[in-house]
């Protein structure tokens, strides 16, 4: 019964209709949450006693970092669906996630640097999280480059999906190896400012931002993925109606 559902929503016309209905809701809700969250984070939440106002950067840094990883997971899952069920829609979704995820990774890195510059004194340290975020960016770029260089659509889809699946198997290994390398290499040169259990006034904007980013992400993927589906299906009959 579940499989039937996949086939139902996996067929391009149904997917298109469903997604176009979903998209405005996601965008409105996501933007609303982001707006409230950033106002809350920037103006309402109290200053951190250690870091002052600079801690407000985390309201923009943490959601993008979360999103960069979950976008990769989403890309990997839709690649698996694409390869297993040969679903064109899943490939389209995976392809439209890739640039978004890469951009979010870049944003996470840039905001992390902007936070690190006043806090640690340097924009870049060989911290485990920073390094694995950078590797994540490389994985995204590899996917995008592979997809762009193979001319033929179907081959490009399947090759890039295989790469994404390999990446998803490898990502935990990379992450833990970097963590391990880091702990042995430079123990305690940077003490992560021990985060005292974050108070409620500081927490709610952060949660709001994270969820808002996620919902916004779904909205954008609806739009981008449906554009991709349209381009692929441009010769079929149902697209004439839209």
């Amino acid at each position: 019964m579940n499989l039937k559902k996949i086939y139902k929503y996996g067929s391009p016309p149904n997917f298109y209709r469903f997604v176009m209905k979903l998209e405005p809701w996601c965008l409105c809700l996501g933007l609303l949450m982001i707006a409230i969250g950033s106002i809350g984070g920037l103006f309402v939440a109290p200053k951190d006693y250690q870091m002052g106002d600079a801690f407000r950067i985390i309201y923009f840094h943490v959601p993008s970092a979360y999103l960069s990883m979950s976008a990769y997971a989403a890309m990997g899952i839709s690649s698996i669906i694409g390869i297993v069920w040969r679903s064109n829609v899943a490939f389209a979704v995976a392809k439209s996630i890739a640039p978004f995820g890469a951009l979010m990774t870049a944003v996470a890195l840039i905001t992390g640097m902007l936070w690190g510059k006043p806090m640690w004194g340097t924009a870049w340290v060989w911290d485990a999280r920073l390094t694995s975020e950078f590797i994540l960016l490389l994985l995204y770029l590899g996917y995008i480059a592979l997809h762009a260089t193979i001319k033929e659509q179907k081959r490009a889809d399947r090759a890039a999906s295989l790469l994404a699946i390999l990446g998803i198997v490898n990502l935990p290994i990379i992450h833990y190896s970097v963590v391990w390398w880091n702990t042995l290499h430079q123990a305690s040169t940077i003490s992560k400012l021990d985060s005292p259990s974050i108070v409620g006034e500081m927490l709610w904007p952060l949660l709001l931002m994270i969820i808002g980013y996620m919902i916004f992400f779904v909205g954008v993927i609806c739009r981008g993925g449906s554009a991709e589906v349209l381009m692929r299906e441009k010769r079929s009959n149902w697209v004439k109606e839209v």
Binding site: I135, L138, L139, L141, G142, A145, L146, T149, I150, E152, R155, A159, L162, L163, L166, G167, N170, I173, I174, S177, V178, W180, W181
Partner: peptide, 25 residues
């Protein structure tokens, strides 16, 4: 995976580096 591509050099490097990294470490 890069078999059909004419000049795969840079792309290969980009693909291979993140995957090999744990082994190098």
């Amino acid at each position: 995976i890069t078999l059909g591509i004419r000049y795969p050099g840079a792309l290969m490097t980009l693909i291979i580096t993140p995957i090999t990294l744990p082994i190098l470490i």
